[in-house]
Amino acid sequence: KEMRNAYWEIALLPNLNNQQKRAFIRSLYDDPSQSANLLAEAKKLNDAQA
Score class of each variant (00 low, 15 high):
Pro32Gln: 03
Lys44Ile: 08
Ile25Asn: 02
Ala6Pro: 05
Leu38Ser: 03
Tyr7Met: 14
Asp47Pro: 01
Lys44Met: 12
Tyr29Gln: 11
Glu41Pro: 00
Arg22Tyr: 15
Asn46Ser: 05
Ala42Met: 01
Leu45Cys: 03
Ile10Thr: 01
Ala40Glu: 07
Asn18Pro: 11
Asn15Trp: 14
Glu41Ala: 14
Lys43Val: 08
Ser27Lys: 13
Asn15Phe: 13
Ala42Cys: 02
Leu38Phe: 05
Arg22Thr: 09
Ala50Arg: 05
Phe24His: 01
Ala40Thr: 08
Ala48Val: 10
Gln49Val: 08
Asn46Gly: 02
Ser33Ala: 10
Asn37Lys: 13
Arg4His: 14
Pro14Glu: 07
Lys43Ala: 04
Ala40His: 09
Ala11His: 14
Pro14Tyr: 05
Ala42Phe: 02
Arg4Lys: 11
Pro14Ser: 08
Arg4Asp: 08
Phe24Asn: 00
Tyr29Glu: 06
Gln49Gly: 05
Ala11Gly: 04
Asn15Arg: 05
Asp47Val: 11
Asn46Cys: 02
Ala50Phe: 10
Asn46Thr: 01
Lys1Ala: 12
Leu39Thr: 04
Lys1Leu: 12
Ser35Ile: 12
Leu39Ala: 06
Ser27Glu: 06
Asp31Tyr: 12
Ala11Pro: 02
Gln49Met: 09
Asn37Gln: 09
Gln49Arg: 07
Gln19Pro: 06
Tyr7Val: 07
Gln20Tyr: 02
Ala42Trp: 01
Asn5Trp: 15
Phe24Thr: 01
Ala50Asp: 09
Trp8Leu: 13
Leu45Phe: 04
Leu38Asn: 02
Ala23Ile: 13
Asn5Arg: 15
Pro14Asp: 04
Pro32Ala: 04
Ala6Glu: 04
Ile10Ala: 00
Glu41Met: 15
Glu41Ser: 10
Asp30Lys: 11
Leu13Val: 01
Asn17Asp: 05
Ala50Lys: 08
Gln20Gly: 01
Gln20Phe: 02
Asp30Val: 13
Tyr29Trp: 11
Leu39Arg: 08
Ala6Lys: 08
Lys21Thr: 02
Gln34Lys: 09
Gln20Trp: 02
Leu16Asp: 00
Gln49His: 05
Pro32Val: 04
Asn17His: 08
Ala6Met: 13
Leu28Asn: 01
Ala6Arg: 06
Ser33Thr: 08
Asp30Gly: 10
Lys43Ile: 07
Ala40Pro: 01
Phe24Asp: 00
Ser27Cys: 05
Asn18Val: 10
Asn17Ala: 05
Lys1Arg: 05
Leu13Phe: 05
Ser35Asp: 03
Ile10Cys: 01
Ile10Ser: 00
Leu12His: 15
Leu28Gln: 01
Trp8Gln: 10
Ser27Gly: 07
Asn15Met: 05
Asp30Met: 15
Leu16Tyr: 00
Ala11Phe: 15
Gln49Asp: 03
Leu13Cys: 02
Leu12Glu: 08
Arg26Ile: 08
Ser27Tyr: 08
Glu2Arg: 07
Lys44Arg: 11
Asp31Val: 07
Trp8Pro: 01
Lys1His: 15
Ser33His: 07
Ser27Ala: 13
Ala6Asp: 03
Met3Gly: 08
Lys44Asp: 06
Ile25Leu: 13
Gln49Cys: 05
Ala50Ile: 12
Ala11Ile: 14
Asp47Ile: 13
Ala42Arg: 00
Asn37Phe: 13
Ala36Leu: 10
Asn37Asp: 05
Asn17Pro: 02
Asn15Thr: 03
Ile25Met: 15
Ile25Arg: 03
Asn37Thr: 07
Arg4Asn: 08
Asn37Glu: 10
Ala36Cys: 07
Leu45Lys: 04
Arg26Met: 14
Asn18Phe: 13
Pro14Met: 09
Leu13Met: 12
Lys44Glu: 06
Tyr7His: 08
Leu13His: 04
Lys21Ile: 05
Ser35Asn: 04
Glu2Trp: 02
Leu39Cys: 04
Gln20His: 02
Ser33Tyr: 06
Ala50Val: 14
Met3Trp: 14
Leu12Met: 09
Ala40Tyr: 12
Asn37His: 09
Asn17Leu: 06
Leu28Ile: 09
Ile10Asp: 00
Ala48Thr: 11
Asn15Tyr: 15
Pro14His: 06
Tyr29Ala: 08
Arg26Val: 05
Asn37Ser: 07
Ala36His: 11
Glu9Val: 15
Pro14Leu: 07
Ser35Phe: 12
Pro32Glu: 04
Ala23Val: 06
Lys1Ser: 12
Ala23Thr: 13
Ala23Arg: 12
Glu9Asn: 11
Ala23Trp: 15
Leu28Met: 08
Ala11Met: 14
Leu16Arg: 00
Asn5Thr: 14
Asn18Ala: 09
Lys43Asp: 02
Arg4Met: 15
Ala23Gln: 09
Leu39His: 02
Ala48Trp: 13
Asn17Ile: 03
Pro14Val: 06
Leu16Cys: 00
Ala6Ser: 06
Gln34Tyr: 05
Met3Lys: 06
Lys21Tyr: 02
Glu2Pro: 07
Asn37Val: 12
Asp30His: 15
Tyr7Ser: 10
Gln49Pro: 03
Arg26Thr: 04
Pro32Arg: 04
Gln49Trp: 08
Ser27Thr: 07
Glu41Gln: 14
Ala11Asn: 15
Leu16Asn: 00
Ala48Tyr: 11
Ser35Trp: 12
Gln20Pro: 00
Lys44Gly: 05
Ala42Ser: 03
Leu45Met: 08
Arg4Leu: 14
Asp31Asn: 14
Asp47Ser: 12
Lys21Asp: 00
Leu13Gly: 00
Trp8Lys: 15
Trp8Ser: 07
Glu41Arg: 15
Leu12Trp: 11
Trp8Cys: 10
Arg26Pro: 00
Asn17Cys: 05
Arg26Cys: 07
Gln34Asp: 06
Tyr29Lys: 10
Asn46Pro: 01
Leu45Asn: 02
Asp30Glu: 11
Tyr7Asp: 02
Gln20Met: 04
Leu16Glu: 00
Gln20Ser: 02
Leu12Lys: 15
Asn15Gln: 04
Tyr7Gly: 09
Ile25Trp: 15
Gln19Trp: 14
Leu12Ser: 12
Ser33Gln: 08
Leu16Thr: 00
Asn17Gln: 04
Glu9Gly: 11
Asn5Pro: 05
Met3Val: 11
Trp8Asn: 10
Ala48His: 09
Tyr7Leu: 11
Ala6Val: 05
Arg4Gln: 11
Glu41His: 12
Ile25Glu: 02
Ile25Val: 05
Leu13Ala: 04
Arg4Trp: 13
Leu45Tyr: 04
Ser27Arg: 14
Arg26Tyr: 13
Leu16Pro: 00
Ser33Gly: 11
Ala50Trp: 09
Leu45Gln: 05
Asn15Glu: 03
Tyr7Glu: 15
Lys43Arg: 12
Tyr29Thr: 09
Asn5Tyr: 14
Ala6Tyr: 12
Arg22Lys: 06
Ala36Val: 10
Asn46Phe: 01
Glu41Asn: 13
Lys43Asn: 06
Asn5Val: 13
Ala50Glu: 12
Leu38Lys: 04
Gln49Tyr: 11
Glu41Trp: 15
Ile25Ala: 04
Asn17Val: 03
Ala23Lys: 12
Asn46Tyr: 01
Glu2Val: 07
Ala23Glu: 04
Asn5Gly: 12
Asp31Thr: 11
Ile25Gly: 02
Phe24Val: 02
Asn18His: 13
Leu39Gly: 02
Arg22Met: 14
Asp47Met: 11
Leu38Cys: 03
Ile10Leu: 09
Asp47His: 13
Ala48Met: 11
Leu12Tyr: 11
Asp47Asn: 10
Asp31Cys: 12
Leu12Val: 07
Leu16Lys: 00
Tyr7Thr: 08
Leu16Met: 02
Ser35Gly: 08
Arg4Cys: 13
Gln20Asn: 02
Asp31Lys: 13
Ala11Trp: 15
Arg22Ser: 08
Ile10Tyr: 01
Lys43Leu: 08
Ala11Glu: 06
Lys43Ser: 04
Asn5Gln: 14
Arg26Gln: 06
Arg22Gln: 10
Lys44Leu: 06
Arg22Glu: 07
Ala48Ser: 13
Asp47Thr: 09
Lys43Trp: 12
Leu13Arg: 01
Glu9Trp: 13
Asn17Ser: 12
Glu9Pro: 02
Leu38Ile: 13
Pro32Leu: 04
Arg26Gly: 03
Asn17Met: 05
Gln34Gly: 05
Trp8His: 11
Asn46Ile: 01
Trp8Thr: 08
Arg22Trp: 15
Asn17Trp: 04
Leu45His: 03
Lys1Pro: 10
Asn18Ser: 14
Lys43Phe: 09
Leu13Gln: 03
Lys1Gln: 09
Ser27Trp: 14
Asn17Glu: 05
Phe24Tyr: 07
Ala40Gln: 12
Lys1Ile: 11
Gln19Glu: 12
Met3Thr: 12
Gln20Val: 04
Ser35Cys: 06
Ser33Glu: 06
Trp8Ile: 12
Glu41Cys: 10
Ala11Leu: 15
Phe24Trp: 02
Leu28Phe: 03
Asn15Gly: 05
Asp31Pro: 01
Asn15Val: 02
Arg22Pro: 01
Asp31Leu: 08
Lys1Asp: 14
Ala11Asp: 03
Ile10Gln: 00
Met3Phe: 12
Ala36Asp: 08
Ala6Ile: 09
Trp8Phe: 12
Ser33Lys: 11
Ala50Pro: 06
Leu39Glu: 02
Arg4Tyr: 15
Glu9Lys: 15
Asn18Asp: 06
Ala11Arg: 15
Ala48Cys: 05
Leu38His: 03
Phe24Cys: 02
Leu13Lys: 02
Glu2Cys: 13
Ala42Tyr: 02
Arg4Glu: 13
Gln49Glu: 05
Leu28Thr: 02
Leu38Met: 05
Ala42Pro: 00
Leu12Cys: 10
Ser27Val: 06
Gln19Ser: 11
Lys44Ala: 07
Ala40Val: 08
Ala6Thr: 10
Asn18Tyr: 14
Leu13Glu: 00
Ala40Arg: 13
Ser35Pro: 02
Glu41Lys: 14
Ala40Met: 14
Leu28Asp: 00
Ser35Val: 09
Tyr7Phe: 11
Lys44Gln: 07
Asp30Thr: 14
Leu39Phe: 04
Leu45Ile: 09
Asp47Arg: 13
Glu41Thr: 09
Asn5Ala: 13
Ile25Tyr: 15
Asn5Leu: 15
Met3Pro: 06
Arg26Ala: 06
Gln20Lys: 02
Lys44Val: 10
Asn37Leu: 14
Asp30Gln: 15
Glu2Gly: 07
Asn15Cys: 04
Asn46Trp: 01
Leu39Tyr: 04
Arg4Phe: 14
Ile10Pro: 00
Asp31Glu: 08
Gln19Asp: 11
Gln34Val: 05
Ile25Gln: 10
Asn18Lys: 12
Glu2Leu: 07
Pro32Thr: 03
Leu38Tyr: 07
Leu16Gln: 00
Ala50Gly: 13
Ala48Gln: 11
Leu39Pro: 01
Gln19Cys: 07
Asn37Ile: 14
Asn17Phe: 06
Ala6Gly: 04
Tyr29Gly: 04
Asn18Met: 08
Ala40Leu: 10
Leu16Phe: 01
Asn37Met: 13
Trp8Val: 12
Gln34Trp: 04
Asn17Tyr: 07
Pro14Asn: 06
Glu9Tyr: 15
Leu45Pro: 00
Ser27Met: 09
Asn15Ile: 01
Arg22Val: 09
Leu38Gly: 01
Ala6Trp: 15
Asn46Glu: 01
Gln49Asn: 09
